[in-house]
Amino acid sequence: MSINATLIGQMITFALLVWFTMKYIWPPLFDSLEERKKKIADGLAAAERGQEEILLAEKRAKGVLKEAKEQSTEIVTLAQKRANEIVEESKDNAKKEGERLIVAAKAQIEQEIQQAKEGLRQEVADLALSAAEQILGAEIDQAKHQDIISKVSKQLG
């Protein structure tokens, strides 16, 4: 039961065991534990981030969809407006064209009336001339009395 040299032997063994544990056993096991902890933490964080990203993406998609709808409504409105404008414009054009046609037709009619008048006047002059010729016989020289004839025909016009 006495204390003896066994004590020293045991102390040496103890020191060796502690040294060996400190050098070769504790660090690798402890490191692998820490590394695994880190891995798990990273994995969890990544999963969470993924979830958040999904939510964000959904929100973004909704936003894009809404914008697209708005844009399409705007485009349809614009197109309708444009169509109305075109219809109005063509109505205007048609009206103008009609008026122009009417004016042209009137002018032509006027011209034709003039021509007809001219023709009639000529004919009346001729008739009068021939009548006078017949009345006066060969006495009246056309060249001599040209002046009088044209005066008469002007009075007729």
């Binding site: 544990t21 056993i25 692998s32 891995k39």
Partner: peptide, 16 residues
């Protein structure tokens, strides 16, 4: 020592 050294040599941060 033997037991723990065996574990330490094969220590991995993957599935233990």
């Amino acid at each position: 020592i033997w037991f723990f050294k065996m574990a330490a040599d094969k220590a991995t941060s993957g599935v233990p």
